[in-house]
């Protein structure tokens, strides 16, 4: 499953790191399809506040989630400088709206530590763990947990 070109050492994970609402996050590079600039989404009626709407991604209609709102953090400013990380989990594609992509990290499997107690429950449930890099605490997101409510909606 691991695509060639990334992480030749199977113990090394490559993570895409990004910032939103003043915090650092990362997700596994294997779930990232592409990173693109913000474009205005079409609103979805009666959607949760963190669902910004849907955009056209090469013919597919893809929902955009505002990560800051999803995690209950301070809302971020709506600017054209924000970026969308297009992620795929199972066969579903969605975009994560964040402020900026900061880095691509290579982390050994042992480098991911359990989530410390300081996080709130809502945040904890969506984290796989944390990575400490140059004194920064980077939260590793469990991408699948970001859209649990869709399971019912799609049924």
């Amino acid at each position: 499953m691991r695509s060639s070109g990334y992480a030749t050492d199977p113990d090394i994970r490559e993570l895409v790191a990004f910032r939103t609402a003043g915090q650092d996050f990362c997700i596994d590079i294997l779930s990232v399809r592409e990173i693109r600039g913000w474009s205005r989404p079409a609103l979805l009626p009666h959607a949760p506040t963190y669902v910004q709407g849907v955009i056209n991604l090469r013919g597919a209609v893809v929902p955009i989630l505002d990560l800051a709102r999803r995690l209950g953090l301070e809302p971020i400013e709506n600017t054209d400088r924000n970026v969308i990380i297009v992620a795929a989990i199972q066969s579903r594609i969605f975009g994560l709206l964040v402020e900026a992509v900061t880095d691509i990290l290579s982390v050994p499997a042992t480098g991911v530590q359990p989530t410390p107690d300081l996080a709130s429950d809502i945040t904890r449930s969506m984290l796989k763990g944390v990575v400490v890099q140059e004194e920064r605490l980077i939260r590793l997101l469990d991408v699948g947990q970001l859209l649990p409510q869709f399971e019912d909606a799609a049924a």
Binding site: L44, P45, H46, A47, V54, G59, A60, V61, V62, P63, S91, R92, I93, F94, F150, D152, A153, A154
Partner: peptide
């Protein structure tokens, strides 16, 4: 374009 695949029914 279906919405079900990536989102759900609205």
């Amino acid at each position: 374009k279906g919405l079900e695949a990536n989102y759900g029914q609205i």
